[in-house]
Structure formats: structure tokens, C-alpha cells
Amino acid sequence: MNIDEDTSAWLGCPTPLEMYKHHCALLEDELNQTQVMLHKARRNIAGLVQLSDDLVTGKTSAEDALNKARSEVARLNRENSEMDRKINGLLTVAEQRDYLTRENQRLLGELRKVTEPQP
């Protein structure tokens, strides 16, 4: 019985060279898939960077608009305060006018009583 006989070709077993070639082909496929995934990831990162830049720009413009709105609100509050003081002054003058009108009517009534002939 000869046990040194090469049996690798009996059942279609690949030769070491064929195994290395197959292994290289698997590695090449894996490398190609990795490159595709890397390219996709780089595009995603570029998109995220652009989105971040857009958000920062939008945030800045929103903050500017908010600051302008706050300034406008402060200005309108000052104007409202001034108008309130003017209105309160006018209401005081109106109350004084009404008081003086009533007092004038009362005094006219007393004057008529004094100046009218008594029956």
C-alpha cells in the first residue's frame, strides 16, 4: 500500500494556487465593497457638513432677526409708556375740566338765585 500518493485531485479538490487565487478574489471583492462604502460615507459626511453649515447660517440669521425683534419690542414699549403718560395727563385735564364745568354751573345757579327777583 502506497500512502505517499497525491490524492488532492481525486475529488476535485483545488490546488494551493487555485485556493490562493480564490482567496485573492474574495479579498478584492471585499476591498471593492469597502471602497464603495467609504465613498458613500464620504458623500454622507460632505452632506452633513453642508447641512451643518446651512444650520449655522440659519441660526445666525434667526438670532439676528430675534435681536431686531427685541429692539423693536423695546422701542414700542417705550412709545407705549410715553403715550400712557400723555393719556394720563389728558385724563387729568379732562377731569379738571369736568369739575370746573360743574362748579361753574353750580355758581351760575347760585348767581341766578341771587339776581332773580324774589316773588
Rank of each mutant, 00 (worst) to 15 (best):
L100Q: 08
R85W: 08
L48N: 14
D64A: 04
I87S: 04
L111E: 06
L90W: 07
S8K: 06
L17H: 10
L66S: 07
Y20N: 14
R112W: 00
R85S: 11
T15R: 01
D53V: 06
Q118I: 14
I3C: 09
R85A: 10
E72S: 07
I45E: 15
N67H: 12
N2L: 12
T15Y: 05
T60H: 12
M1L: 13
Q33S: 07
W10S: 10
R102G: 03
N44Y: 09
G58F: 05
P119H: 10
D53W: 13
D64R: 01
H22M: 10
R97D: 04
N67W: 12
V56R: 05
S61H: 12
D6R: 02
R75M: 13
Q105F: 01
Q50N: 15
L31A: 10
V56I: 14
T115H: 06
Q105H: 06
S61G: 08
D4G: 01
E103L: 00
E72H: 03
K21R: 14
A9K: 03
D6N: 01
S81M: 08
L108K: 03
K113S: 13
L108N: 01
Q50F: 12
L90V: 06
L107W: 06
G58Y: 05
N80W: 03
D84L: 15
L55K: 15
S61K: 13
R102Y: 01
